[in-house]
Structure formats: structure tokens, C-alpha cells
Design a protein around this nucleic acid. Sequence first.
DNA 1: GCATCAATGTAGCGAGTGCTACAAGAGCCT
DNA 2: AGGCTCTTGTAGCACTCGCTACATTGATGC
Lengths: 182, 182
Amino acid sequence: MTIRDDRRAAALDRMADHLLAEGLAGASLRPLAKAAGISDRMLLYYFDDKEEVLSLTLMTIAGRLQGDLAAVSAEPVPPRALAPVLWGVLQSPAMQPVMALWLEVAAAAARGQEPYVRIGTQIGEGFLDWVEARLAVAPGVDRRATAALILGVIDGLVMMGGVGQAALAERALAVWDLPSGV
Amino acid sequence: MTIRDDRRAAALDRMADHLLAEGLAGASLRPLAKAAGISDRMLLYYFDDKEEVLSLTLMTIAGRLQGDLAAVSAEPVPPRALAPVLWGVLQSPAMQPVMALWLEVAAAAARGQEPYVRIGTQIGEGFLDWVEARLAVAPGVDRRATAALILGVIDGLVMMGGVGQAALAERALAVWDLPSGV
DNA sequence: GCATCAATGTAGCGAGTGCTACAAGAGCCT
DNA sequence: AGGCTCTTGTAGCACTCGCTACATTGATGC
């Protein structure tokens, strides 16, 4: 059994790279199998069907993301200071394919398509937990909601960057960071 | 010429409904033609290729959106007051298919796929113009960037709503609206 | 009436989709 | 050695994809 598990894990790892590079449009069985270095016949021998392949590949990517995020300092800071931190992490070049894929998953989830709803919810909650753990708020303020606000701002600005307004998104974040508020 | 133009317009109108209902996954020629009430053969007689069909259908939807948005009061209000207005408009049930499609277009644009880059940029700028026109800011504050911040927050929260956290998004907006800031 | 050309249907091409039936090799247990 | 299960390749099915060749209709102009 463990041999099969090893091969499954190896295939998932290589398919994760492929999915990050090509997006959901590249998520058909033959290209995925080719990326994994096996035949499509074997891909469906190791996994039940396409949905399982896709789910586990996305979970693999989510796991990597979790690891990258966990490496960031867990020192709690106030909301206005945390937002630029999250922006810096998610906007880094290495993270760009991940965020592009995250947008695709979120869009599919908003359409109610499985397995994207399930996985999108999971990833979203991971982000929220990460923000909440690093967030210092005044007593009485809704902590989870504040985390959601920060994540919302950053996701929205990432989305804006995706439609060619990356510079404007940067300026928007600077406005939020002003002492005057907004 | 005008007969052909009328039929093109009629087809685009019906295909816009179809695209809103089914998303980009339903954007293949045969289903689109069926929705338009014509044969796929005629669809490619009226339009050059799939890209033109898709572009013009998305532009049709963008035009409708523009109309709906224009109907909202143009009285300038400060940022914290404008955000809930935009949220109210974009979160209304009638707008839900539009926002789901907007997410899909933005995701495809972030992947660099045409025609989504071009159209996504255009729609994004339409949103920004709308916000900016209704925004009252203190002198010296970057007006466009403030509009981008508001749009970013709302887009991000719409995205969050799409992955099953609509209630949390609502709470997040309430937190931003507190006098204390955040 | 006849020619011309726009409009439309039928049929199909070649490629890709998820998935499966069948058979053959490979290693193991008794 | 004989059977047995695990693994793998070959081939293919039924379908969708964007797009096109060909033929037929219908209206229009001379």
C-alpha cells in the first residue's frame, strides 16, 4: 500500500506544479498525467476519478500555501499594520500563480461547482485563521470580522491587480494606511 | 445591413442572459446558439469566431451593468458611507449572477487570457469611475486610490461571500463602518 | 425569366474530453 | 508449477469542442 501512496504523493506534487502554471484550464486528465510523468490510464488507477485528482492536487497546493504562510511572524499587530504584511506576502512574485489559481477557485466556488466550493471554503478559512492569529484589536471589537475585513481588502486588491491595476491597488493600500483613516 | 445588426443585437441579448445564468462554463458555441434561438452555423455567420461572440456578449452585460449603476444617486458621500452603498447594490439578488460572472472574468484576466484581460480592465475602470464620481474626500487625498480602496474592499467581500462566508463579509463591512476606524 | 448573391440547413472534420474493457506481464503464495 | 492478484499498456467509446465545405433556398436586380 505504501508504494501506491508514495506514487500518489509524487504525482500530486508534480500535478500541483502543473496546475499552478496552467490554471484550471490545464486541469484535464491527459495533460495532468503527462505532467505527473505517467499515463492517463495510471492516473485513474491511482485515483478514483477527475474530481479526486483535482481535489487532492488543490489540497496539495493549499498545504504548501499553509506552510509558506506559517513562516511569517505571528506577532500580533493592529489591523492597519497587518494589511500591508499580508499584501506583501500575497503579492510576492512567487505567490502570483497561487493567487491566480485562488481567484479561479473562488470564481468556480461562487458558481456552486464542486469540488471548488468545499476547497474554496477551506482555503478561505485558512487565510482567516492566519490573519486572526496575527491580529491585535481593541477590546470589544469583533475579531473574526476584522480579520475578514483585512482579508477582503487584500483579496479585492489582488483581484484589481489581476485586471491590470496593480499600481493603483498599491496606492489604495497606502491610502488605507494613512493616519487620517478612510 | 441593419437587419443583420438587429439580429446580432437580439442574439447578443439572449446570449447575455444565458451567460449570466450558466457562467463561462456555458460559453461554448452550441449552447450559446441554442440560447439565442439560432443554429450554431448561423451564430458563426453573424459573428467572426467564438472570441467575437464572447467579447460582444460580455460587453452587452457590461452595458446593462453600467445602466443599473448609473441609476444610483450621484450625490458625493465620504468613503465610509459609500462602501455600504456599493455593497448594497452589488450584493442585491438581481446582481448576483453579474458578480459571479465578474469573478470568472477577473480570474481569467489574471491568467492573461484574451479577451478577458481587455474586457476585465474595461469593467474594472467602469466600476472605479462610478465610485470616484460619488466620492467625497478631504482635500489632498488621492481620490482615485480611495475609490480603488472602496472597490477593493467590496470586491474582496463579494469574493468572500462566494466561498460561503456572506454573513462574515457583512460583519466585516460593519466593522469598517464603526466610528473607531480599523 | 433568369442570373446573382445573401441566408440557412446538413453534415462532418480533427482534436480533445472523462472514462473503461481487455489483455498481458510481474510478482507472490501454496 | 499453478494459480492469483497487482500493475500497466493498448485501444477505444461516446461525447463536446471550434469551425468549415457543400448544397439548397429565397429574394433581388436586370
